[in-house]
Simulated scan of single mutants.
Amino acid sequence: MVTPSLTRAQRAEATRRAVALRRERASLLQNLGQGRENLQEVLERKDEVVGRIRVQTLLKALPGIGPIRSLRLMRQAGISERRRVTGLGPRQKERLLSLLSSSDRGTTHAQGSVRISV
C-alpha cells in the first residue's frame, strides 16, 4: 500500500493531532484510575479518544486491576486480548461491567456506578 504524499504542513498538522489525542487518552486513563471518570460512561463514549484504547489498557487503569486480572475479566466476558473499545459490542460491555460489579470479594472501591473489588 502506497501512503499518500503529504505536504509539510499536512504532516505537521497530523503530528499535532496525534499528540493531542495521545495526551487526551493518557489523561482519561489517569482520571479513570483516580475515580474522576466512570467506566460505564467511558465505555459508552463514541469518540476516537476512547475508541482506540485497548480494552486491557482501559481495565489496567482501574484501581486494583493489573495485567492478569484484566485478561481474566476479558476472557470471562468473551473479549479478545487485542480488542479496542470501539470494537466492543453491547453484550460484551454489559458482561464486563457485570463481572466488575459482581466481584465484591474483599475491599471495594467506588468507581462511579461500578464497584470494583481489590
Rank of each mutant, 00 (worst) to 15 (best):
M1D: 11
M1K: 03
V2F: 02
T3Q: 12
T3C: 04
T3V: 07
S5Y: 13
L6M: 14
L6W: 09
L6G: 04
L6H: 07
T7I: 09
T7S: 15
R8N: 02
R8V: 12
Q10D: 09
R11Y: 14
R11P: 02
A12R: 11
A12Q: 09
E13H: 14
E13D: 14
R17Q: 15
A18K: 14
V19G: 00
L21V: 14
R23V: 07
R25F: 06
A26P: 04
A26F: 00
A26G: 03
A26I: 00
S27I: 01
N31P: 00
N31G: 13
G33C: 04
G35R: 05
E37H: 08
E37K: 08
N38I: 05
N38Q: 05
Q40N: 10
Q40I: 08
E41M: 11
V42C: 06
V42T: 09
L43I: 08
R45L: 07
K46P: 06
K46G: 12
E48N: 11
E48M: 02
E48W: 07
V49K: 03
V50Y: 02
G51K: 05
G51R: 01
R52L: 13
I53D: 06
R54V: 00
R54H: 12
Q56P: 00
L58P: 05
L59N: 03
L59V: 04
L59W: 12
K60P: 01
L62E: 10
L62K: 07
P63N: 10
P63Q: 15
I65Q: 11
G66R: 10
G66M: 08
P67G: 15
R69Y: 14
S70P: 08
L71G: 12
L71M: 10
M74D: 00
Q76P: 00
Q76G: 03
A77W: 08
G78Y: 08
G78D: 04
I79T: 03
S80I: 02
E81M: 02
R82M: 03
R83M: 15
V85C: 08
T86R: 09
G89C: 04
G89Y: 01
R91Y: 12
K93C: 12
R95Y: 00
R95Q: 05
L96K: 06
L97N: 05
L97S: 07
S98L: 11
L99K: 01
L99Q: 02
L100E: 02
S101L: 04
S102W: 06
S102T: 14
S103A: 14
D104W: 11
D104N: 06
R105A: 11
T108V: 15
H109K: 06
G112A: 04
G112V: 05
G112P: 03
S113W: 03
S113R: 15
V114C: 08
V114L: 01
I116Y: 11
S117W: 06
V118I: 06
